[in-house]
Measured scan of single mutants.
Amino acid sequence: SEFSSRSGYGEYVQQTLQPGMRVRMLDDYEEISAGDEGEFRQSNNGIPPVQVFWQSTGRTYWVHWHMLEILGP
């Protein structure tokens, strides 16, 4: 990996993601499973900070930056 740390990767995702971009989950996290795909909606200063609309659940759920792989527009 070109990223030395999880936080470095998270910063990359945070700087790159734009609303509407497709993402894939890298880790299991509460209701969301690794491999689930969705659409980035928004972020804020909460914890976790990233709101994604997940195809698997049909609704939005908040996750962490480093848990997401960017699939593209």
Rank of each mutant, 00 (worst) to 15 (best):
S43V: 09
R41I: 15
T57A: 11
W54A: 05
A34V: 05
R59S: 14
S7G: 13
L68M: 04
E37I: 13
D27H: 09
E39A: 04
H64W: 04
S5N: 10
Q15V: 01
N45D: 08
L71D: 07
S7R: 12
F53N: 05
T60G: 05
T60W: 02
L68R: 01
F53E: 08
M21N: 09
Q51M: 05
E2S: 14
D28G: 01
E2Y: 15
A34Y: 03
G8H: 08
T16H: 13
S56G: 10
M67P: 01
L17K: 00
Q51T: 00
S4H: 12
Y9A: 07
I32L: 15
R22A: 04
S7Y: 13
S7P: 11
R41L: 13
V13C: 12
E69Q: 00
Q14S: 11
R22V: 10
F53L: 14
L17R: 01
N44T: 15
R24K: 03
S56R: 14
V13I: 13
R59N: 12
L71C: 02
E2G: 12
L71T: 13
V52T: 05
V13K: 03
Y12D: 04
Y29W: 12
V52P: 10
L71P: 03
H64E: 07
R22E: 00
Q18M: 09
S4T: 11
D28A: 04
S56F: 10
Q55H: 15
I47R: 10
M25Q: 06
S5Q: 02
Q51L: 04
I70G: 05
W62A: 15
W65H: 05
H66E: 06
R24M: 04
F3E: 10
G35T: 00
G8V: 13
Q55V: 13
S4W: 15
W65R: 06
Q18I: 12
E39P: 14
S43L: 00
G8C: 13
E37G: 06
L71Y: 04
M21H: 05
M25F: 01
H64A: 01
T16I: 08
P48A: 13
F53W: 13
Y12T: 14
E11K: 11
Y29T: 03
S5E: 14
F40I: 06
G72Y: 09
P73C: 07
S4A: 12
W54S: 01
G46T: 15
G20T: 03
S4E: 09
E30S: 03
Y12E: 13
H66N: 07
Y29P: 03
W62D: 15
E2F: 15
F40Q: 04
E11N: 13
V13W: 00
D36V: 03
S1Y: 15
S4G: 12
T60A: 11
R59A: 06
P19A: 07
E31V: 12
D36C: 08
W62G: 15
M25S: 09
E2D: 13
F40D: 00
Y61A: 15
N44V: 15
G35C: 02
W54E: 07
E11G: 11
P48V: 14
G35M: 05
S7M: 15
M21E: 04
G38C: 07
M21Y: 05
V13E: 00
I47Q: 12
